[in-house]
Amino acid sequence: MAAQSTLKNMLLCLTLVCLVCAALLGGVYAMTYKPIQKTNENILKASIGAVLPDGGSISDQKTTSLDGKAYTYYEQLSGGAVQAYAVKSATTGFGGTLELMVGVLPDGTVYNTKVLSHSETPGLGAKCQTDRKFLDQFQGLGPDKSVKLRKDGGDLDAITASTITSRAYTLAVSNAVELVKSLKKEN
């Protein structure tokens, strides 16, 4: 019932199938290109919105580096002045990269934090997204406090049984605060 396996048939068939598939994919790609961009933008906007106070407009993405590490950040402007910064800050957790969005006020107070991506152990380190007792410590954390775990001589409690994740989280926040402080100095 199948067509004969002559060289001509095989070549013709493979070429045709590949062409049709490539055309189909190109079409779907073109169709979904804008929606994908928009979805990614929305996710980014939502995560920035979640870590900053209400109001003001968000600037375009800016990049800078501090101590040899590159950072991406966004400024929230209100009446021409910077009202807050949202900094993307990545460190190494237990299972891999832990990436946070950290909202910092110009005086170095942490407004809020949000996990962008992580590969921590489910049920242990992955609680860094949900453990309110841990996360609430960062909300409104003043510049006078030391952004370190209690174990490392700071003021923060770690997530139970997930010290490495907690330490990575804390480091990411403290890096973001340092970055904002250095941005203020430059201005």
């Binding site: 019932m1 199948a2 067509a3 004969q4 396996s5 002559t6 048939n9 095989m10 068939c13 493979l14 199938v17 590949c18 598939c21 189909l24 994919l25 779907v28």
Partner: peptide, 23 residues
């Protein structure tokens, strides 16, 4: 299936499946 020569049916199927996965 009826149009595909027997000897190349696996590669053809894989291309078809990979296309839908990419979609």
């Amino acid at each position: 299936a009826p149009l595909v020569p027997d000897k190349v049916h696996i590669p053809v199927y894989i291309v078809v499946i990979a296309t839908f996965v990419t979609v």
